[in-house]
């Protein structure tokens, strides 16, 4: 890296880093264009209330997508998050309900108990998957597909196939309250994002994640404990899925066994739209956040315009494929 390359925008940048920035700007510009178009086509779009709505509606997918980013950066995938959302939601809710038929003995407990339980369930699911992927060399697709099925089954057994209603107000507070006018789930998403950004860009652990995804063999020879890194990214993804499950239950007021079906697909979509490569090693959590916002803004905008949700699905599909096509083209040109 030399100062002779005195290009005003990126003199100090390596070419990889510059490409990533351009890519990120590309997504950011797409996001801005979407917002501008929607605000011209609908007068309500840019109101404070609606912006708060969009952020709120993005919070759950955002949290899941950030967890997914960690996994995909190591060349993995986590298909189990939707089922883990349901399992963590229903188990934690059973500690926070006043409904006699759905509660565990002694419920409702003080709110930190159900929260700890929900996170523990997510971390445990992630731990199981992580161990299978990292120790037994089972492909992530297969291991997490197994967890997708098993966690859903556990959810149905645990709740007898019925929802856990009547959650105590303190628990619902996680999903429904606001601080200084900002909904708490949005604040939670912001915190998750900030911590993840810091971990991935500023810590050794973060650099190891990129190294493992970029070239596992080189990472291993340079002394990185690849097994441990691979294990931990699933724990992070599982723990965040547990958090998302509680947010969902708290928002809807009841933990449903059918909750979270196909949520993994929206999370993966956000990561891919955000420019993270499924081949591992390349990508940013900032891109993921913008990817999640693009999906949220699009759904919200089309709802405001009264367009059938089926069109939303077509647009989302086009967006996912389009984002990757652009990415491939850029890689070829570089």
């Amino acid at each position: 890296m030399s100062d002779t390359n005195a290009n005003s925008s990126g003199g100090w940048l390596g070419s990889d880093r510059r490409r990533l920035l351009i890519q990120e700007y590309g997504i950011f510009i797409a996001f801005v264009i979407l917002v501008v178009v929607l605000s011209f086509s609908n007068p309500y779009f840019l109101t404070a209330g609606n912006i708060s709505n969009v952020l709120l509606q993005t919070s759950i997918n955002g949290v899941l997508a950030i967890g997914m980013t960690f996994v995909i950066l190591t060349r993995g995938i986590d298909l189990s998050v939707g089922s883990v959302v349901a399992l963590a939601g229903i188990v934690s809710a059973s500690f926070a309900t006043t409904s006699a038929s759905a509660a565990v003995a002694g419920a409702p407990y003080p709110v930190f108990v159900p929260i700890a339980v929900g996170l523990a369930v997510g971390v445990a699911c992630g731990g199981v998957v992580g161990a299978i992927v990292s120790r037994f060399a089972v492909p992530a697709f297969v291991a997490t597909l197994g967890m997708l099925s098993a966690a859903r089954g556990l959810t149905l057994i645990y709740g007898n196939g019925r929802p856990v209603p009547a959650l105590v107000p303190e628990f619902r507070w996680i999903g429904t309250s606001s601080i200084l006018g900002i909904p708490l789930p949005v604040i939670i998403l912001a915190v998750v994002f900030a911590v993840s950004w810091w971990v991935l860009t500023q810590t050794r652990f973060g650099r190891y994640i990129y190294a493992v995804g970029g070239n596992p063999h080189a990472a291993k020879t340079s002394g990185i404990n690849v097994t441990r890194i691979r294990f931990l990214v699933y724990v992070i993804s599982g723990g965040l899925a547990g958090l998302a499950g509680m947010l969902l239950a708290a928002r809807t007021g009841s933990a449903l066994p059918q909750a979270g079906i196909a949520y993994e697909l929206d999370a993966i979509a956000a990561v891919v739209i955000g420019g993270t490569s499924l081949a591992g090693g390349v990508g940013r959590v900032t891109g993921t956040l913008i990817g999640a916002l693009i999906i949220g803004v699009m759904n919200n905008g089309l709802d405001l315009m009264g367009i059938q949700s089926y069109y939303q699905q077509i647009l989302k599909g086009a967006l996912i494929v389009g984002a990757v096509m652009l990415d491939q083209k850029r890689n070829q040109n570089a």
Binding site: N42, Y44, T47, G49, N50, N53, L56, Q57, R251, T252, N299, N300, D303, L304, M305, G306
Partner: peptide, 10 residues
């Protein structure tokens, strides 16, 4: 819930 949130805006 999402639909209704958006309709209450529009």
């Amino acid at each position: 819930q999402t639909l209704m949130e958006n309709w209450l805006t529009s």
